[in-house]
């Protein structure tokens, strides 16, 4: 399946680009994170904490919903999906 991924800072720094279109053979967002960490090693320290668990500081939108509103890392991705990765931050 073909996915369109959009990264904002600091994830875009690790990828070297803001938008990546990719072929993906897996099923879930969790699998996608693993694949991306393999492909872009600098991403793995941004995605995972030292103990290997996925960091709290990553928000992923799958089309128009955060994966928190879906099945979390088990959320299934489908052909043509768009994903947005961003760092949660507040302020004014």
């Amino acid at each position: 399946m073909r996915l369109k991924l959009e990264f904002t800072k600091p994830f875009s720094d690790a990828v070297g680009r803001k938008v990546v279109e990719m072929e993906f053979g897996g099923n879930t967002c969790g699998e996608l994170l693993e694949r991306l960490s393999g492909e872009y090693p600098a991403l793995s320290t941004k995605f995972y904490d030292e103990d290997g668990s996925v960091t709290d500081y990553l928000i992923i939108f799958l089309n128009d919903k955060p994966i928190s509103a879906l099945e979390g890392l088990d959320s299934e991705v489908r052909d043509g999906d768009r994903l947005l990765f961003f760092f949660p931050i507040s302020g004014g």
Binding site: T8, P10, F86, F87
Partner: peptide, 23 residues
């Protein structure tokens, strides 16, 4: 130790612009 502290300390709140805009 939080990942958020160095980001706030190096980029500050302008980081939010890109997030809100992408969204």
């Amino acid at each position: 130790k939080s990942k958020i502290t160095p980001i706030l300390g190096s980029v500050g709140t302008p980081l939010l612009y890109e997030v809100s805009n992408a969204f």
